[in-house]
Design a protein around this nucleic acid. Structure first.
Lengths: 233, 233
DNA sequence: CAGTGGTCTAGACCACAGG
DNA sequence: CTGTGGTCTAGACCACTGG
């Protein structure tokens, strides 16, 4: 039986997936090289390359020049979380978005914050605290430090009508960032704001963004109890 | 001044990034089409396409046929978490990995588990509980249900020498899955196993994987206090 | 309808790394 | 040294979708 021809890279990808899944190609196995596969599939090598590259990006294949392409022996699942503006996130859940500014001050940050943002000791940052609401219930508490040396316009914005979360994304580009997900017990203050008992287990996202060598902002989002981040594999 | 020529797709990508970042192209702006950019950059349209496609995948550009390519007005940050085998994860942190099987029984799962896995009521699953250790300290508690109708070989495995986490990845392919990240207070039992007080805030990963229409396994990983998932943006 | 991105092709050269 | 994947090119056709 001849393999039917595969016209596009997605059908090539599907066929490769099928073979991996059917254990025709087992984890650790070396699979044929691009040229041979192109011949077998009746398409250009470029097309095979595109398909295999996509699978390698997804962690299902390991590719090395000269060594060839192998089925990943321990596929690393890549869970991609979309981190959107909180307003959008709430609205996509079909809920009414609300926003309350809690505090907006210029202040010298705690040393840990200042150090991670690589700020000169004694420099002031803009400190914003705000509550995001979904259907009038607390959704997430935002605690943010903004590097006003980089984001000067932030000083002219009162953050009453728009959250810093949204304002920054619209106005301030960044080159890269770091993000962390963790669990934390609610402080008394957090409990009061989020309307949950102190010590409640809360999901937290810490994010630090950079504009080249300068920090832009560091934010902690503390979500209400029960919040989940979901995605598909 | 003429734009110098850009030889490869990565340098094209860098130039586009530079323009977005320098606000030459602002959020919401329509950028030139691929043909024009190829002309300007002195490369083939394919190369421009590859660069722009990568940026669109990353959420920085919105592309639509006929409508053209725009700078995303609210870039959605894509945080990609690599979910590896726990042993590998621990070893990559430079720590010694350890593993203890806590329990292995065949049992009818709670209705919530059975329903989410789409199991016939009354069917038995294999229930595994195990503790993963890093440098002899508790790292994560694994609580797993395996669909033995799909993964028959699991019944022949005692999971003393290898964790179900690792064994399944090596032996059982899956087509897709769902994953969720949340925070949870430690139960008394979890506290005892992980060596932390009950009610501690713990980071939890719930994962459910499928082989086409059949569920393969549902697992909850409860991490020791303070555990973080980190990645870059 | 027509402009845009999406993709395929055949051929070419190159960079890397195994042996 | 040589086989492999990585990429670029020029040209072509197609699919989608805005106007």
């Amino acid at each position: 039986m001849n393999t039917p021809t595969f016209r596009d890279w997605q059908s090539v990808q599907n066929e490769v997936l099928r073979r991996i899944h059917a254990r025709e190609w087992k984890p650790g196995d070396l699979i044929p090289n691009e040229t041979d596969l192109a011949l077998e599939f009746g398409c250009a090598r470029t097309t095979v390359n595109r398909a295999l590259r996509a699978l390698a990006d997804n962690g299902l294949l390991d590719r090395k020049r000269k060594a060839g392409t192998r089925v990943a022996s321990q596929p690393v699942a890549k869970a991609t979380l979309d981190i959107a503006v909180i307003r959008t996130e709430v609205e996509e859940r079909g809920q009414k978005y609300g926003y309350q500014l809690i505090g907006r001050v210029e202040a010298v940050p705690p040393v840990a914050i200042g150090a991670s943002m690589r700020i000169e000791a004694g420099d002031q940052l803009l400190h914003i605290r705000a509550l995001h609401l979904a259907d009038d219930a607390p959704y997430a508490l935002e605690d943010r430090w903004i590097n006003t040396n980089v984001v000067r316009d932030a000083l002219a914005e009162d953050f009453h009508g728009i959250s810093a979360n949204e304002w920054l994304l619209k106005t301030t580009p960044y080159t890269h960032g770091e993000i962390a997900f963790l669990a934390k017990a609610a402080t008394i203050d957090e409990g009061a704001v989020l309307g949950c008992p102190p010590q409640s287990a809360l999901l937290v996202i810490d994010r630090l963004t950079w504009d080249n060598a300068q920090s832009v902002t560091k934010v902690r989002l503390v979500f209400s109890p029960g919040h989940q981040l979901r995605t598909i594999l």
